[in-house]
Design a protein around this nucleic acid. Structure first.
Length: 77
DNA sequence: AGTATTTGACCTCG
DNA sequence: CGAGGTCAAATACT
């Protein structure tokens, strides 16, 4: 947390695929020390609207309500 | 046929 | 050097 990430913020949601925009998944990587993989998403309209918004979805828990930590970068146009 | 999705490899940054 | 991140090609579905 060194924090000057003014274009990045964390949010916890149960439905990371329905947050108000469409996202195209462009990668998946297992992070060392993380119990679950991390999914890389990008705005589906990036080429149409220059929406440079990107998103990371990291599954935190798979319990009864499943919790996902979503990191957003930049804003939507 | 087109687009979205998947996995792997390659590249970059710390 | 390692981990993380991104891009590319192939496949599947619509």
């Amino acid at each position: 947390m060194k924090g000057k990430d003014k274009h990045t913020w964390i949010k916890h949601t149960l439905t990371p695929y329905f947050d108000g925009h469409l996202w195209r998944k462009y990668g998946q990587k297992v992070i060392k020390d993380a119990p679950h993989p991390r999914l890389y998403f990008r705005c589906s309209y990036r080429e149409d609207r220059h929406c440079q918004a990107s998103k990371l979805v990291q599954q935190v828990t798979h319990d009864d309500p499943p919790l996902y930590e979503v990191t957003y970068m930049y804003e939507h146009t």
